[in-house]
């Protein structure tokens, strides 16, 4: 379990990282915390010719905030959220989610941007950023562009990042103090990737309501209508969740279906205790 030979670059600036990545083309790979890429390198599932290490770039560790949003650099680590070292735009939701990612040793090195770019459908940040309606800023040799989180994930481990592009920052709309969120994941074992994730975020001040079903071997599924009717009535009692989940996941096994229904139901319950 040793990687194939590769070049290792440690650029001093983001723009240098972008030009190094463009220079290597499809054979270059960005590494930040290395918590997913490391094992893939060792298993030789990833066989890059060059690794460009962006972990140390200050530009990617900054937090910018304004009235409506907070923008996080992609190389901010899970522990920075967990330990409250960066501002939380989400009434505690991001801090809670970060604390539940894998184990502390992973959180010490793993980064939010790395997790998003890796695009594991069962990853916490993938589902959370969609639930929060985040916007991603990516930088390539031809410039910057922004992508809505819901458009970023194309499939399991597939994103709309083009060759040569680096995920630079994540912009999260602030949740107001009227907002409430529920987050529930079902794991086979503590610290493992989830079998099912259910999320509900409701922010009356912004007229925002979103439900997300995650960890379904496909990009997270957004159930906005469902969320809106729950938010309107203040309860999920009248909704047949199992049917709604089945409609969203027509190919899921009975066990997976039940897991997703329960995860969503428990997330809703955190917002609207019955």
């Amino acid at each position: 379990m040793k990687p194939v030979p590769f070049e290792y670059e440690k650029p001093g600036s983001l723009s240098l990282a972008v030009s190094q990545l463009s220079a290597t083309g499809v054979n270059g790979k960005i590494i930040a915390g290395g918590q997913s890429l490391g094992p893939m390198l060792n298993l030789r599932l990833a066989r890059p010719e060059a690794l460009i290490d962006i972990r140390q770039l200050d530009e990617l560790s900054r937090v910018q905030s304004d009235e409506k949003t907070v923008t996080y650099g992609a190389a901010i680590r899970h522990v920075d959220f967990e330990d409250g070292l960066v501002e939380d735009a989400t009434q505690g939701m991001m801090r809670h989610v970060a604390g539940g990612i894998a184990h502390r040793a992973v959180r010490n090195r793993g980064t939010i941007g790395g997790s998003l770019a890796h695009a594991d459908p069962a990853a916490d940040w993938v589902n959370t950023t969609i639930a929060l309606n985040a916007t991603f800023t990516v930088l390539g040799s031809t410039g910057r562009r922004t992508i809505a989180a819901a458009d970023f994930f194309l499939g399991a481990f597939t994103t709309s990042l083009n060759d040569g592009e680096i995920l630079e920052k994540i912009t999260i709309p602030r949740l107001s103090d009227q907002a409430a969120w529920g987050y529930y994941k079902i794991c086979r074992k503590k610290g493992e990737f989830a079998e099912a994730i259910g999320i509900l975020v409701v922010d009356p001040a912004r007229g925002f309501a979103r439900a997300v079903l995650g960890a379904a071997d496909a990009p997270p599924i957004v159930l906005d209508q469902l969320a809106a009717s729950i938010a309107e009535s203040g309860t999920a009692k009248d909704i047949n969740l199992e049917e709604a989940v089945q409609a969203a996941l027509p190919d899921a096994s009975p066990v997976s279906l039940r897991h997703h229904s329960v995860a969503l139901q428990r997330a809703i319950q955190q917002v609207y205790p019955s």
Binding site: I186, R188, E195, P254, V255, R258, H259
Partner: peptide
Amino acid sequence: TPERILSAIL
């Protein structure tokens, strides 16, 4: 496993 137990329950 949770999957085996839940399968049996279902």
